[in-house]
Design a binder for these strands. Structure first.
Length: 296
DNA sequence: GATTAATGCTAAA
DNA sequence: TTAGCCTTAATCT
């Protein structure tokens, strides 16, 4: 259930805890047994994210390609050294969970018996990672990885020229509603249902506005705000789009749905104009917006 | 114990 | 536009 910020954090996490290590790769569930055998006992050399896609490179030139889909998740665990390397601080994030030896029990002695449908298990010297529920989990060649990247649009978490220009062109060349374009991974890679709703609200853009009716300036600001808010998500490990003035008095982090302007707030008064937040179905996904603030 | 929803995507119709 | 797929956790009976 992650959006691009979670996958980016996972890429960092894998580089930190497994980079340069030879890993035992298995598929306790069995569905990925053949692929796991191809990667077993190889060194993981590099970890890379683009949009919602994660690529782990191995020494034999094969790549583990993972897309978590709606409800895929990685669980991590290990000893103190593993924890020290971990880039994921707070526990129990969507798409990224971790459990660690607390130092009080017995010393790390390998991973626990798999719980549930573990598609892939990676085991290094100091820790382990379990994958469940992913849409895509495959051992692929570098050429196949390039083919995947070729059909993805610019990633706001990379944001190198000409990424912004590609986004602006992608938006302005289509008459599809902007809310649908933000979910189109060929137009912008990594945005999901939460960020699309929140960013459109922050920019006060009507979600049903056709892409080709956005001004260049509006499209550029939309990209820039997505870059900012998703970058915050990588830092925070969660999606927070409201400023502290909307949080409880003195709180350093928002509680519950104070983190969002419109996502999952249908029927509640808009935080800015008090008009009830609307909900509609668009392309099979739920779309949230404020009819008061987002009229153009 | 059964049902449902979830930050997703693809291929068939 | 719809059906199908992957799995879990929260919400029902």
């Amino acid at each position: 259930m992650p959006e691009g910020h979670s996958v980016r954090r996972l890429a960092h996490q894998f580089a930190d805890v497994f980079g340069g290590e030879t890993l035992a790769v298995s598929s306790p569930q069995g569905r990925f047994a053949a692929g796991a055998a191809l990667l077993d006992d190889q060194m993981m050399t590099e970890s890379q994210a683009h949009g919602k896609h994660l690529f782990l490179h191995f020494d034999n030139a094969l790549v583990l390609h993972v897309h978590l889909g709606l409800y895929g998740a990685w669980d991590f665990g290990g000893d103190a050294a593993f924890r020290g390397a971990s880039s994921i601080g707070a526990p129990r994030k969507v798409g990224e969970r971790e459990t660690f030896d607390d130092g009080n029990g017995p010393a790390y002695d390998g991973p626990p018996a798999p719980v549930g449908a573990v598609r892939v298990r990676l085991v290094g010297r100091h820790g382990w990672a379990d994958l469940r529920g992913a849409t895509t989990c495959a051992a692929i060649t570098r050429a196949e990885m390039s083919a995947v990247l070729a059909r993805l649009g610019p990633d706001p978490l990379r944001n190198l020229p000409p990424d912004r220009e590609r986004f602006v062109t992608g938006v302005q060349s289509r008459k599809t509603p902007i809310a649908a374009l933000l979910m189109d991974q060929k137009v912008i890679a990594g945005v999901g249902n939460v960020y699309r709703a929140e960013v459109l609200f922050r920019q006060r853009i009507n979600p049903l506005l056709p892409g080709n009716s956005l001004t260049r300036s509006a499209a550029e600001l939309l990209w820039d705000d997505t870059v900012k808010v998703m970058g915050d998500g990588v830092r925070d490990g969660r999606i927070i789009t409201t400023p502290p003035s909307y949080w409880a008095e003195g709180a350093s982090l928002p509680a519950g749905d104070d983190a969002h302007y419109v996502y999952k707030r249908q029927g509640l008064p808009c935080r800015v104009c008090a008009v009830p937040v609307a909900l509609a179905e668009l392309g099979g996904r739920k779309l949230y917006w404020c009819p008061g603030c987002q009229q153009h």
